[in-house]
Design a protein around this nucleic acid. Structure first.
Lengths: 76, 76
DNA sequence: GTCTTGGTTATCATAAATGATAAAATAAGT
DNA sequence: ACTTATTTTATCATTTATGATAACCAAGAC
């Protein structure tokens, strides 16, 4: 597990956590972001290194900031 | 200029600003991040939609957080 | 049991990020 | 003027994020 993989897993977990906090289904958030639900699942699982724009769409549809989403240090 | 382009330009400007604040040359920061200097120039110019990992390497080598780097709202 | 809902996994195609190299432009100094 | 350093731009190859589709899995409801 290299540096990049760890980052991907961390961002995936964070997105999942933020999404579940709002009680929104994965497929629903994916749809709002215009992301395929399968791809969204892969992202949450840490299987991708998302681009800024992808993260931005997720943040926007969660009603949070990019800063909130990449705040990966203090999540346990 | 669509949504995505605006985001790219904004992140590019922000990276450039943060880099210049530290008085470090573009090519030097690029080297530290293991990014080709030409690609780094393109990124600062808003010509790319960087991945999370790319932004992470830049943040690390600037000694700042990802959150700092994507804090795009309050820069004028 | 079946049906739904939410999520996962696999696969392939396409678009785009990045690597890599080279050349040209720009700025600053002497 | 001439360097030198820095940045920009163009181009091509390679890797990978994403789109797109399909099949599958799990948990509840009924």
């Amino acid at each position: 597990m290299d540096d990049k993989d760890q980052l991907q897993v961390a961002i995936g977990k964070r997105v999942k956590m933020l999404r579940e906090e709002q009680g929104i289904a994965q497929q629903d958030l994916a749809a709002k972001c215009n992301i395929e639900k399968s791809n969204f699942s892969r992202l949450e699982a840490g299987g991708t290194n998302p681009t800024l724009y992808t993260l931005k769409r997720i943040a926007d549809n969660l009603g949070i900031t990019l800063c909130d989403i990449v705040n990966l240090e203090d999540e346990k």
